[in-house]
């Protein structure tokens, strides 16, 4: 469904992605894990069109995305839940959700989806008229996910949905992701929280300083000693004591 072939991208003269290849099949949950500065966010910005790649190919459902602007890419069925949630602070919760469906022309379907999302996430109904900026971090994350779902994406991309959230909220967000997975939503999930991400994902890629160093089934990655040491914190004590 989504394929990246030797993608290179960066900011100014600084290269961040040094040739990344990955793919996501329909119905799969794929995670991209790695530390700070590995290029995870850059990968998602490149796919969504915010940062055009320097080299390589990005294809989605047979379409070349490399030269399309983000406002066109979202119409093809790719939605991104950006890092740090990025809700529109002064707009109401409902207005945020409506903007998620901005590009859609099927207005009656949009109204139905809005109702469905409010039912699924009751907090968004309770706070419908409140400014999004007044919500807690976890509530904003739920809003950001709801907003992306309003686009009716064929592929949902999430950038560190657990970042900065209380543990209870992390559990809740991952519960939502598991539900979406059960419904067959295709997901590309970027995380620093490798433990949580590998639990929900089918497959994973490990990104380090702009290169994919490891990939495989999520279960295999969980058992990989290198992944355990670097990203899951296992063996941490043995190394240091």
């Amino acid at each position: 469904m989504l394929t990246l072939k030797s993608v290179q991208a960066g900011y100014g003269r600084l290269p961040v992605l040094k040739g990344i290849s990955l793919h996501v099949r329909s119905g799969e949950v794929v995670t991209l894990i790695g530390g700070n500065g590995a290029g995870k966010t850059t990968t998602l910005r490149t796919i969504s069109g915010l940062l055009p790649p320097r080299k390589g190919a990005v294809e989605f459902a047979g379409q070349d995305l490399t030269r399309l602007p983000p406002e066109r890419i979202v119409t093809l069925g790719l939605a991104l839940v950006p890092e740090g949630r990025r809700v529109f602070r002064t707009l109401s919760v409902t207005a945020n959700l409506e903007l998620g469906a901005y590009h859609r022309r099927d207005k009656s379907e949009v109204r139905r989806d809005l109702e469905e999302i409010r039912q699924r996430f009751p907090i968004l109904k309770e706070r419908a008229h409140q400014a999004a900026g007044t919500l807690s971090g976890g509530e904003q994350q739920i809003l950001a996910i709801g907003r992306a779902l309003m686009a009716r994406p064929r592929l949902l991309m999430l950038d560190e949905p657990s970042m900065g959230l209380a543990p209870r909220m992390v559990t809740q967000v991952y519960h939502i992701l598991a539900e979406l997975k059960a419904q067959g939503t295709t997901i590309l999930l970027v995380e620093q929280n490798a433990r949580a991400a590998l639990k929900v994902a089918d497959r994973g890629y490990v990104l380090e300083t702009g290169r994919i160093i490891l990939d495989g089934a999520a279960a295999d990655l969980r058992d990989d000693p290198e992944v355990q040491r670097a990203y899951l914190g296992k063996g941490y004590q043995e190394v240091w004591e």
Binding site: L50, P70, E71, V74, A79, P82, F88, L99, Y102, H103
Partner: peptide, 24 residues
Amino acid sequence: TTYGKAIVACALDRDTARLMGINV
């Protein structure tokens, strides 16, 4: 109006507005 909210969205966060499909 939708366009009014889209203008506010662009003023608040241009990149995220583009992700919504708004032509800035």
